[in-house]
Amino acid sequence: MKPIKVLELSEDDRLKLEKGYHKGPTHCFRIRCKSILLKSEGKSAPQIAEMLEVTVPTVYAWVKRYEENGIKGLETRPGQGRKPIMDCSDEEAVRKAIEEDRQSVSKA
Rank of each mutant, 00 (worst) to 15 (best):
M1D: 13
M1V: 09
P3I: 00
K5Q: 14
V6K: 09
L9I: 05
S10D: 13
E11P: 06
E11Q: 12
E11Y: 13
E11L: 14
D13L: 14
R14M: 07
R14D: 05
L15W: 11
L15V: 14
L17Y: 05
L17Q: 04
G20E: 01
H22S: 12
G24E: 05
P25R: 12
H27M: 12
H27R: 07
C28A: 11
C28F: 10
F29V: 06
F29W: 07
F29D: 03
R30A: 11
R32Q: 05
C33R: 00
K34G: 07
K34L: 12
L38C: 03
L38N: 04
K39H: 02
E41D: 15
E41W: 11
E41G: 12
G42H: 02
K43S: 11
S44T: 05
P46H: 05
Q47A: 08
A49G: 07
E50D: 09
M51F: 08
E53H: 07
V54R: 00
T55F: 01
T55S: 02
V56H: 08
T58S: 11
A61K: 07
R65M: 04
R65I: 01
Y66A: 07
Y66C: 07
Y66D: 03
E67R: 03
E68Q: 04
E68K: 01
E68N: 02
E68G: 01
N69E: 09
I71R: 00
K72P: 03
G73T: 00
G73K: 00
R77Y: 15
P78T: 01
P78D: 02
G79I: 14
G79M: 10
Q80W: 04
M86P: 05
M86V: 09
D87W: 04
C88Q: 15
S89M: 08
S89T: 15
D90W: 02
E91H: 10
E91K: 09
V94L: 14
R95H: 11
R95T: 05
R95C: 13
A97S: 11
E99N: 13
E99L: 13
R102L: 15
V105M: 13
S106W: 14
